[in-house]
Amino acid sequence: MSIKRLSLYLLPVLLVVGCGGGGKAEGSGATEQKAMQTADATQSPAEGEKVSKFGIGPVQEPLNLPETIDEALAKKGEEIFDKKGCTACHELDSRKVGPPLRDVVNQRPPEWIMNMIMNPEEMILKDPVAQKLLEEYGVPMTNQNVSMEEARAILEYLRKAAKEKN
């Protein structure tokens, strides 16, 4: 193959690469960032499945939670749960718009729960467990702009709720 011929083959590839590489950076910073997190998450899937154990979102390191409940944090979490509008769709023991949450900490990893709280749009689009929940409940979980600190407090509230039942 002549060099000229080769360049004809290469050119479209370079163009594509060029466009992809130079793609949208400014203007959609959030999407870009999330896309990178996705890539990270898919590198550590649970064995044998496409499911990422922790889901997709800012929590990618194991939380290593102690057995005991931080009562003050749980109380704060309960307040945030109400204040952030979570009660519009969730109750502990019965199905409202979304699933009941009493046992959620026994059903999913705590990291997954925090990611679902903080990054619901992307979870619904990409995480198989979240997708299955959407199929069952029909209503996508809303993003209520919950911070990492607030999500951690809500998690503690849910951990406490699970313990109280037991």
Partner: peptide
Amino acid sequence: NLEENEHPYAVKSEN
């Protein structure tokens, strides 16, 4: 920010 809403008829929680 919903927490900062000081409207006298605001409801911040469905409760």
